[in-house]
Amino acid sequence: MRGLRKLHWLDWAILALLILLAGYVWLRIDGTLNYKWRWQIIPQFLIRYDEEAGGWVGGTLMVGLFNTIRISIMASLLALILGTILGLARCAQNLTIRLLARTYLEFLRNIPGLVVIFIFYFFLSEQLIAAFRIEDWARDIARGDNAWLWEIFFGDMRRFPSLISGVFVLALFESAFVGEIVRAGIQSVPKGQREAARAMGLSWTDQMRFVVLPQAMRKVVPPLASQFIMLVKDSAIVSLISVQDLTYRTVELVTSTRAIFEAWITTALIYGGLCFGLSLLFRRLEQKPGRRS
């Protein structure tokens, strides 16, 4: 409340202008587009009562959201592993390793994410899924007794191949950015730390494992957290390779109900709420004083 009293006449002017603008847009949609709002149909796509099962079940958007969360978590774990390897490779003594890492990175950084994802999807995922017979394997599990357990982690098992390619493609794409964050973290560790470790006779792996990486990782937690939020948002892209995430489900919903504005606004709010919630959470975690700082 104290904040309100500090409002200047300029603040009021800007607010008034914004309200006018919003009103104008509203009138345009209402009058010109002749759009009929049907907000009442949205809740059933979030959560609905299933007569057959006799309980509440998630609607199509909720199922999509859970897939988005699954993909984001799995892809970020994989991206963290790949990114750490990439970051280490970028700092390697061997020139060829450094050049390979650099090439991979530049390739990913200078090509639009969408194009990268299509390339990975058609050239890698498709081939690998066929080669490892993942489709058959997943179908067997979907028919088996433990299907429910697998579904907690991977959603509908019949959709497993597409989910897993989504995870791979996203992880490969994000690994480039994670790799740069890790490299910056490694290089932020003072040179003397490596020297002390070397002078002790530690091997290269031990120098990294016990001295450099623990310090680097502590420094890269904040940028990695924001990269994770980026990844949640970027994950919308995998809807284009038929992964049934929140965006894909929204597209489907819009096709079947024509509730374009309602569906997309709902989805935007879900993404926004998820990412904003995450950033608040990470900020809270960061503010907690580390015991070793």
């Binding site: 003397g192 002390a196 016990f210």
Partner: peptide, 10 residues
Amino acid sequence: FQQFNLFPHL
């Protein structure tokens, strides 16, 4: 070393 170079996280 001049700057000690102890490992601060240990």
